[in-house]
Every structure is written in structure tokens, then in C-alpha cells.
Amino acid sequence: MHELSLCRSIHQVVAEAAADRTVAAVHLKVGKLRQVVPGTLTYCWGLVTVDGPLAGSELVVESVPVVGTCRACGRDTEVEQVLMLVCVHCGDAPLDLVSGEEFLITTIDLDDPAPAGRRTAS
């Protein structure tokens, strides 16, 4: 529901990181426990970037599954559909979540080559 305000936050971070260089794509990781609709997010990205420095850039959303580690046996369970924090291996509960709540910008792809001394990823 708040995809628009999230896109504004993403925009702020990306515009600062790109520092006037042309952005081709912004890569996000979004855990499935984050109540975000990827299609709505990419739609809102078009709205917040129009006419701005990031116009035409693509928002690429990678979904991260919900995974919990069993406190009893230590093995991981991927939780699908309904959130039931029960170990699939030993049936014990609860699980400590290790992924599924991510919401972060991982990388930004730039169109133009970096000026000397500004290259940040190798």
C-alpha cells in the first residue's frame, strides 16, 4: 500500500549514490514477508522517476524467500504460503527467521562509464 513512499526513499538513495551519472537499473532484494507488491513497486518507480535524473531507469526486484532455522534441530525450513513457523524436518517450533524480511537496494547499474577514481564495484 505504501509502495509510492518506498519508491521515494529508494529514489533518494539512488540519486545520491549515482551522483549525476545515468542510471540504467536499480536492483532490490525484497523479502516475501515485506508486504510489497513488486508490480506496484515498479509502477510507482515510473511515477517517481518521470522527468527526474533517474527517468528511464529500471527497477529490478528480487524476491527473497522466507526461511527459518529450527531452534531444536538447527535445520532450515522455507516457509511458503501461510506463515507457519514449524520445522519441516523435526516438526518442532518455533523457527528463528533468517531471511524474508529484507528490503534493500543491492546494486545500481550505470549507463555511462565511471570517471577515473570513481569506480566502486569490481
Partner: peptide, 16 residues
Amino acid sequence: ETGADRIVVLERIFDE
């Protein structure tokens, strides 16, 4: 993509 550069950000959107 030739000539493309990639910045690693790893910034949580809820940080601010």
C-alpha cells in the same frame, strides 16, 4: 553490458 558500471549499495530502504 559493455561500458556499464555497477555500484554496490546494500542500503536498507527503511534505514532513514
